[in-house]
């Protein structure tokens, strides 16, 4: 943000990072699986601010069609839901028993590209890929669109909003070379109530 923006108090929202690192997950998951026995659950989601305009709504309808057409062959389904904060989630689920991170990444990318193409790129927040470790505990990898970087998020089960920072830091050490991990820990924002 430049001096002029500060003086005029004019603030524009940053769009997605120009260097898209979403597809890094499609190679990273192989290491997760083979070396750390962390398996993909076959679910991924993208979260964004849904503008209450007819323009945005029609973009979303088109997007859903595109994703269905792209992922339909592999049996991947698309579902939309709003959370209590007014953000919209588009959830992609692989057919049961056939998790494919590649399919999910292609689907998520189709959503983000069509939102960007409609000129609403700055509304994109995150993409989330769900994994489970040997003890069936949930592990999420979150891709921050503005930063173009990934970070792990491991919520501790139960009703309280707690995360296992220890596990997340272990994952960072394990995956640091494979995934572009967000270097600033204070930007590892939790997402509570992820619908996948």
């Amino acid at each position: 943000m430049g001096l002029r923006d500060i003086l005029t108090g004019r603030h524009t929202v940053k769009g997605p990072a120009s260097d898209d690192k979403l597809f890094a997950i499609t190679t990273a998951y192989i290491t997760l699986e083979s070396e750390h026995s962390i398996e993909p659950t076959g679910d991924a989601a993208i979260v964004f601010q849904a503008l209450a305009t007819s323009d945005f709504e029609s973009t979303l309808r088109d997007t859903e069609e595109v994703v269905k057409a792209t992922c339909g062959d592999s049996g991947t389904t698309v579902a939309t839901e709003d959370d209590s904060f007014g953000y919209r989630w588009m959830v992609l689920r692989n057919a049961a028993g056939a998790p494919s991170v590649e399919d999910l990444a292609v689907g998520i990318n189709a959503v983000s590209s069509s939102i960007e193409a409609a000129g609403h790129g700055e509304r994109l927040l995150c993409a989330v890929f769900a994994f489970a470790d040997g003890q069936k505990r949930r592990i999420y990898f979150i891709y921050n669109y503005k930063r173009g970087s990934w970070y792990p998020f491991v919520p501790v089960g139960g009703s309280s909003n707690e995360r296992s920072t220890e596990r997340e830091l272990q994952l960072k050490a394990q995956m640091g070379t494979e995934l572009p991990i967000e270097p600033e820990l204070e930007r590892w924002f939790p997402l509570w109530g992820i619908p996948i």
Partner: peptide, 11 residues
């Protein structure tokens, strides 16, 4: 937190 992601700010 969500606004910080959106605004690209540290928390």
């Amino acid at each position: 937190e969500r606004l910080c992601v959106q605004a690209d700010l540290p928390k």
